[in-house]
Amino acid sequence: MRFAVGDLQGQLEPLDRLLDAAGFQPGRDELWLTGDLVNRGKDNAAVLRRIRALGKSAVTVLGNHDFYLLAVASGAMRRGADDTLDDILDAPDRAALIDWLRFQPLMHVDETFAMVHAGLLPGWSVAQARLLAHEVEGALQGPHWQVFLQNLWGSQPLAWNDALEGWDRLRVIVNAMCRMRLCSATGEMALKYKGPIDAAPAGILPWFAVPGRRSASHTVVCGHWSALGYYNADGVLALDTGCVWGGCLTGVWLETGERVQVACEQAAAPSGWE
């Protein structure tokens, strides 16, 4: 059985309660995590250690906050004033935790489900998106991964083009899969908007609502958009229910659709690279 869970953001205690409530059993079951394992909460290092210790019983994809940690740890980016990463950056096993994280996938595909942190551009099929994710994974797991992270940040280009090359190509892939919530009907990303669907600016749509979206062959499991909350429609299972903001942590058994939730105490105020 596969149990998919939304963004943890450094919150270990709610994860423990959720897995207990769900009856999750490592070895029998597989834990799917939608990314953003770290930042804003207080137990970042403990979260990474716990997920790493699960071995093949856990599958996680990378989120924007995970990329932020990798960039800070590698020296590619200055720290923000409001992150909570000291426990990782000062940990005796810091190098092992960082190496484990950078070898996690950007996208995971299994049968009729595809998991990614934020979303997929409407022109991408699941098969194409998986190949594009492999390109990013190769850069992040290769010997020059710090150089890749130095060239990752930014919001341009806003749209995909098969002719894109180099850093621009990798940046679009990461921004779509880790930052995007909405885009235009032609696939131009609107990366600044973080609010609810009903207050979105005219002319942009949730990425999953674009007519003719090519990834509709699979149910896309994602997180990232806490203002959207739990959403199970249109071939999308969105699971970020604002655990770090005082909402709840949500998990769903993929085989049955059963939802399990636990309440969370607020651990952070909204800010930063979301």
Rank of each mutant, 00 (worst) to 15 (best):
G119M: 00
F3N: 04
A71S: 10
M107F: 00
H65V: 07
V147F: 14
L191K: 08
L131E: 15
D168C: 13
K42A: 15
I204H: 09
C243S: 11
G187L: 07
H65M: 10
V5N: 04
H108Q: 09
G35V: 07
R169E: 06
R214E: 08
F103Q: 12
W160Q: 03
L121N: 04
P157E: 09
I204L: 13
A185T: 00
A238L: 08
M107K: 03
A4D: 02
G75V: 09
Y68V: 08
R259P: 02
A159V: 12
A268P: 06
C178M: 10
R181L: 03
D83R: 14
E165Q: 12
W100Q: 03
P211M: 14
V109I: 07
S271W: 00
G142F: 13
A238E: 00
M107S: 04
E137K: 07
A200S: 15
R259K: 13
A190S: 13
C243Y: 02
D86W: 14
T112D: 00
E137R: 06
P122Q: 12
D83E: 15
G142D: 12
P105A: 13
A159Y: 10
R28E: 06
H218F: 02
L140T: 05
A71P: 06
G6P: 02
G119H: 02
L121S: 06
A185R: 14
L120N: 01
R49N: 08
M115C: 02
D86M: 15
V244G: 05
L31R: 04
R49T: 07
K42P: 14
D82W: 11
G41T: 10
F3D: 02
S57M: 07
H134N: 13
L249C: 09
M177Q: 06
D20S: 15
W32N: 02
G80E: 13
W225N: 03
F113L: 11
R50N: 07
R40K: 15
W32V: 02
D234R: 08
P105H: 10
W225H: 05
V47P: 03
F103P: 00
H224A: 00
V210N: 00
G138V: 12
G63I: 00
N232I: 11
E274L: 15
Q25N: 12
G229L: 11
E255F: 05
L33D: 00
D7P: 04
A238T: 01
R40P: 02
F208K: 02
G235K: 01
P201Y: 14
L239M: 06
E255T: 03
L31T: 03
G235M: 07
M189S: 05
C264N: 09
Q156I: 10
H117D: 06
A129D: 05
M115S: 01
W100K: 03
W124M: 06
H224G: 01
W245D: 09
Q156V: 12
A58L: 05
A129S: 04
I98H: 10
A4N: 01
T256P: 04
E265H: 11
D43M: 14
L254Q: 00
T60C: 01
K194V: 13
V252T: 05
Q261R: 14
R79W: 01
D93M: 11
N44V: 11
W153L: 13
N232A: 15
W100S: 01
V61D: 02
D198A: 14
Y231A: 12
D16A: 15
G123F: 08
P143G: 15
C248I: 13
R50S: 08
L228G: 04
